[in-house]
Design a binder for these strands. Structure first.
Lengths: 208, 208
DNA sequence: TGTACATCAGTGAACGCGCGTTCACTGATGTAC
DNA sequence: TGTACATCAGTGAACGCGCGTTCACTGATGTAC
């Protein structure tokens, strides 16, 4: 008996973060207690402090993980859109369509955006966490702005449009769409809003 | 000496709520303590419990007050827009312009939306508060949907568009725009997004 | 006009519980020689 | 191959503080007669 166990510290840490992310998105960071996380994972309180120096470090690791995974998801999404289309505009439109479909297929709707959650609890967090948050949204702006610059080269817009604002609109619609989906209990709102953005982009650059 | 003081219970209550709203928008409801509110207002803890049965009742009163004031603000805004234009479309466009300008003129940006804040701390609140929140966003949808119905009568849209989704887009852009303005430290994002919506509406119904 | 009572807008002290954090310790696994 | 030591992944007990809530009480203002 008594098998040789592999070292599963990384797994425990991952389980803690998964439990924390769910709890934070549902009731906020301040109301998420270490006690409930260790109960979910099945270790003692001291075990938690082995993995994280304190609650603040958990908050930071959580946000970093979230940002990284969003980055990877968007990279993958629009890369796939481009594989189906040479053209930067149509590749973008395809990517947006796939994005909307992905959001549509989440059975319980999008679980929530940590950036938005942290935004409304800003004062709980240290400066480095806030900076992380700011840099995340600026990176999203840069990402979509870059794409719009490529599009503009080939498709001069009908009316002149602020490209930074249009790039921000993706993030704005996603964060706002998640909120409305949650509050209205209607998982379709978020994908609908992405499709409206897609329609707007078409009107701007194709006129139809 | 010892002037006859008027009864200022209502004023104390109002001061408590103002302090609470600011604190909640900055760090969330759970992290907002009764102690800090009474310190800001200058009464004792028992004084707080004279005005509110408990923290939950404060949460509810806060949200109700916020929803009522938003309702009044939007009523006023679009009524003024309509006074400048017979036409429902152009009245709407003027109202949106005024809305954007109003947001632009807030020196520190929009202080935040309680509906969005509560959304990311849903599990803290009793069912009646969540219902209040849901009804608020549905009322906003109904408000703008009603307007869009009037517009469609006179201006058949170029492409067919989901009017409920378009109505929701106002709320989505405002809630998302507030978040991005806060996180990016750029007060202009919110008004820019409203102007983009205005542009989109123009493209849909006027084609230009 | 005076008096009794009711209401308003609080005070002051105490409560118990849950929270994040610290500290000394431990047994299993891995590594150097 | 055996042994010594280091690291990993925790345990268990204790801490003090802040939190929301309760309760009995109070003094100023308003109202009925």
């Amino acid at each position: 008996m008594s098998d040789v166990l592999p070292r599963r510290g990384a797994e425990t840490r991952e389980n803690l973060m998964a439990a924390a992310e769910t709890a934070v998105l549902q009731k906020g960071f301040a109301a998420t207690s270490i006690d409930e996380l260790i109960a979910a994972v099945g270790i003692t309180k001291s075990g938690f402090f082995y993995h994280f120096k304190g609650k603040n470090e958990l908050a930071k690791a959580l946000l970093q993980r979230y940002i990284d995974s969003e980055e990877a998801l968007l990279d993958d999404l629009f890369r796939r859109g481009d594989e189906l289309h040479e053209d930067p505009l149509h590749g973008f439109l395809v990517g947006l369509k796939m994005f909307a479909e992905m959001m549509q297929d989440l059975p319980n709707g999008h679980p929530g955006c940590l950036v938005a959650s942290y935004c409304y609890q800003e004062n709980l967090f240290s400066q480095d966490i806030r900076t992380l948050n700011t840099e995340a949204v600026l990176a999203w702006r840069a990402r979509f702005r870059e794409r719009l610059d490529l599009i503009v080269e080939q498709y001069p817009p009908k009316s002149d449009v602020d490209l930074d604002a249009l790039a921000d609109m993706v993030t704005v619609l996603v964060d706002g769409g998640i909120i409305l989906s949650k509050v209205a209990h209607d998982t379709q709102i978020l994908p609908q809003q992405i499709m409206l953005f897609r329609d707007y982009v078409r009107l701007i650059f194709l006129g139809t």
